[in-house]
Write a protein that binds this DNA or RNA. Structure first.
Lengths: 328, 328
DNA sequence: GTGAAAGCGCTAACAT
DNA sequence: ATGTTAGCGCTTTCAC
């Protein structure tokens, strides 16, 4: 049967309060009794009941995480980092998935309500209505990647600057014509696609800075490969296809290879994310790498600090690195 | 502030017991009072306190999951399925990662002790000692993928038969020489690599059935690419490189392409898992697909049934499908 | 049909 | 230094 604090108290001939003092390193107990209690507890293989502790302390020792799904390759790394860091600080993690549906995200929040001490939110919602909803939610929330507003603590990377630098790099390679692929942009105004918008902004800024004249083609269609099918890539044009995510870039490369187009001579391809499977793909995709695990760890640290000491640990936007592959 | 059952009781002029009856559809309450209570609860936006409920019911409504990491591409699908199904049945999911270290897996089990009502275990441990350890763990456990012993409920796929069929298929394509790559086999006897062993068994059975004479080369070295570097693939030999996991196969293809080896004419490559990124890789890898999400769902269903009604729902080994690509 | 009371295992405030 | 008591929010038993 389950060993409780009471059992130990009875055996040691002390009260439950004293056992509590011993078990939790509190003051007001003699070394002698403490030692004895600790030993008995160990012998009996005592395991504290976290539920009871939560109830009396009003804390669940759990952090909720809301993501839209787990299919983005980098989320595995993110969750790994979150899980490890949380455990290190004595917290559990409860992951919920919104499946990219704004309504479903609200469900997740409701679901976590009362079950967790804080929430790490990669939001697909935004807007006033959503914010007023979030405001009623009385536990700490930290947003990651998709910015909601200045009211909410945020951790992210310098997406805009990263894409701007990437364009700079590409122009340096002699590319003059640009195609930009980012299907999520179709959801502009409908859901929170902050990171995607920032990347696009960086793209424009990069073009401007480099003085590129020709108008870029922006593809927001999820059937972006079909859009490419309408384009004939002439031998001496050097078109750069900039993709807002590695997955799009991989699909584009796959298509181009099938068409017998030379990469990077004829068409260059650029990705963003540096997902781990790039290691297995030829040619090596040129992309932007950012410290996703760092984001996870910092999010946990910050929210735990908020829970325990009242303040978030604010983090500057994290830096990135351009991975120079062979695709552009 | 938080609304409790007591608040509602006071407002409605009834006792807490009655509120409980109304909120939880219990018998012994008049329609009238029930309706009123429900309405007040809604108006006040009452949210039950799951911690308190857990304490009194002795159940946490949480299922623990132990995996070694999240980097295997298919685990995202597995967890997605688990998460969704668990929520559907009213349970939370608490994921812990053992990082492939047997000691760390024990930590995970200890960690989950008392925090969950049941555990889904993808074990890296095995052996008598481990089993006696598991036996002391007094909540239901269901093992997936890596079989521990007949004492533990298990859900998996027909790995052996799948690999056997795959070999049959490959032989049918005219391949006569075989290389088998499976680095986890180096841990034989040290950790639980049941699925990998089964695949290897299937490989041997397949060769035997097909009457292949030439001895296969079995590579158990994690530096398997380096091993391949020592091999010269002649133009007219048709060597089949069978990999126990898609990730190895991708790396092998990547290497062969760099070497200018023709796939599948000169060397054929076979994978196992059908991870989603295969979609982006040329040539399309031939591989084995199995219903990983089904495993997740069934594991949850079975363990919840055990928790609530005392019995697991036993599941036959699940079936697979050979995905005929262009790599072999 | 409803109320009162006990108690889940633990912590914290107040006595001694 | 230690014991006593109350109570976290809920469920459940037993009266009425």
């Amino acid at each position: 049967m389950k060993v409780t604090i009471k059992d130990i108290a009875t055996i040691c001939g002390v009260s439950a309060g004293t056992v509590d003092r011993a078990l939790n390193n509190r003051t007001g107990i003699s070394e002698k009794t403490k030692k004895k209690i600790l030993q008995v507890a160990k012998e009996m293989n005592y395991q504290p009941d976290y539920t009871a502790r939560s109830l009396v302390m009003g804390k669940t020792m759990t952090i909720g995480v809301i993501l839209f799904d787990l299919y983005n390759r980098s989320f595995a790394q993110l969750l790994n980092a979150i899980e490890v860091k949380a455990r290190e600080l004595g917290y559990f993690v409860n992951i919920t998935l919104s499946d990219k549906k704004p309504e479903s995200e609200i469900d997740c929040i409701n679901y976590l309500k009362g079950k967790v001490d804080g929430v790490i939110l990669f939001s697909v919602n935004k807007g006033e209505q959503f914010e007023s909803y979030l405001s009623k939610f009385d536990i700490p929330i930290i947003t990651i990647f998709n910015y909601v507003s200045e009211k909410w603590e945020y951790i992210g990377i310098r997406e805009r600057q990263a894409m701007k630098d990437a364009i700079d790099y590409i122009v340096g390679k002699g590319y003059q014509k640009f195609i930009y692929i980012s299907p999520p942009l179709a959801y502009i105004g409908k859901s929170n696609i902050y990171t995607q918008e920032e990347r696009l902004n960086g793209f424009y800024e990069g073009l401007e800075k480099s003085g590129i004249q020709s108008e870029p083609l922006i593809i927001k269609n999820i059937e972006y490969i079909e859009e490419l099918e309408n384009i004939t890539f002439s031998k001496n044009e050097k078109v750069a296809v900039v993709c807002s995510t590695d997955l799009y870039a991989l699909k584009v490369m796959h298509y181009l290879k099938k068409q017998g187009v030379n990469i990077p001579e004829q068409v260059g391809v650029m990705g963003f994310d540096d997902i781990d499977i790039l290691e297995y793909v030829t040619p090596r995709l040129t992309t932007v790498k950012y410290p996703i695990e760092e984001i996870g760890r910092r999010a946990i640290e910050s929210i735990v600090n908020k829970i325990e000491h009242g303040d978030f640990v604010s983090t500057p936007l994290l830096d990135y690195e351009i991975i120079k592959g062979e695709s552009i």
